[in-house]
Computed example of a mutant assay.
Amino acid sequence: MRILIVGGTSGIGLALARHYHGAGHAVTVCGRDLARLPADAGVQAVALDVTDRTAVAEAMAGFGAAGLDLLIVAAGFYFNHRRHPLDEATTLRMLQTNVGGLAQLFELAAATMLPRKAGHLVAISSVAGLLQDHPGASLYAATKRSVLSLCDSYRTALAPFGIAVTAIVPGYVDTAKLRALNGGDARHRPFIVSEAEAVTQIVRAIAGRRARCVFPWQMRWLVAALNRLPPTLLRWRR
């Protein structure tokens, strides 16, 4: 397969790139800062800001007539608004990256896949996107709900043309970024899974062309329980 992983220079995106490259696929990763990509990654890399439509279009065009088989969008921006107030620039960046960037990546990738009537679009969301809205809910959670909605819309639109759309909805994954956000150790996070386990779950969902993959199962049930509580009791949530 010809695979493009946006946000593939670190974290889950990089772990997926290593997996698919090791399985013999042609993998290209994109990221804002290619200096983050390890020298031994062994994949083709392209500098890309997902908010730059011209750059995204050029990245898609680079696949030429051979086309793109699989797009995985792992790029995302998180900001803890409970510890630091959101300013205009941070708000705009989160919207442009988590929602606008994904929308134009899906749009342009779909345009390359439709003539061939084949392909697969994948977006990595978060269990935060499954949480019901409530007073004081985070902008991050709202953007991740938008990711799920966008996946649903594209899945409906593209299914008649043989193109699959999968939404990946992980709980806490023990990545370097999560550890950095938690003072170097994220083991206290509920039901945290390793990067290796996350890759296993994601690869399996993609191979099965599943509509949505929520993991771990304990987090799915926790979110379901939280969503049964009155919204006024949920102000403490992230």
Rank of each mutant, 00 (worst) to 15 (best):
V27E: 06
C213N: 02
L16V: 04
A211F: 00
V99Q: 10
G76D: 00
E58W: 05
C151N: 05
R220L: 10
I124E: 00
A141L: 08
A196I: 03
G8N: 01
H188W: 04
L234A: 11
A111L: 13
T166Q: 00
L48H: 09
G162I: 10
V147R: 07
A89S: 14
L14C: 00
V199L: 10
S149T: 14
L68M: 11
I124H: 01
L181S: 11
G171L: 06
R209D: 06
R93S: 12
I163A: 05
A75N: 03
E58N: 15
G13P: 01
V46H: 05
H188I: 01
R237P: 01
S138Y: 11
P85C: 09
F63T: 07
T90Y: 02
D87A: 11
F191A: 13
Y20I: 00
L121Q: 06
D133G: 15
E88L: 15
G7Q: 03
L14G: 06
V173D: 09
R93C: 10
V46D: 03
L16F: 07
L121D: 02
S125C: 01
D49E: 13
P170V: 00
G171A: 07
G8K: 00
A26Q: 13
V193R: 02
A159M: 12
A59T: 15
D87G: 08
A47S: 15
G13W: 01
V73L: 02
T232A: 14
L150H: 03
L86K: 12
D87R: 00
P170G: 07
A109S: 13
D133N: 15
G8V: 08
F63D: 07
A59N: 10
I3N: 09
T156D: 12
G171V: 03
R204H: 13
Q201G: 06
A196L: 10
F77R: 11
V99K: 00
V50E: 05
M219N: 03
Q96N: 15
R93P: 04
M60L: 14
A157Y: 11
A176M: 06
Q44C: 11
G31V: 05
G7L: 04
V165S: 00
A164K: 09
L102P: 06
P190K: 05
L34R: 09
P190M: 08
A211H: 10
H19E: 12
A15F: 09
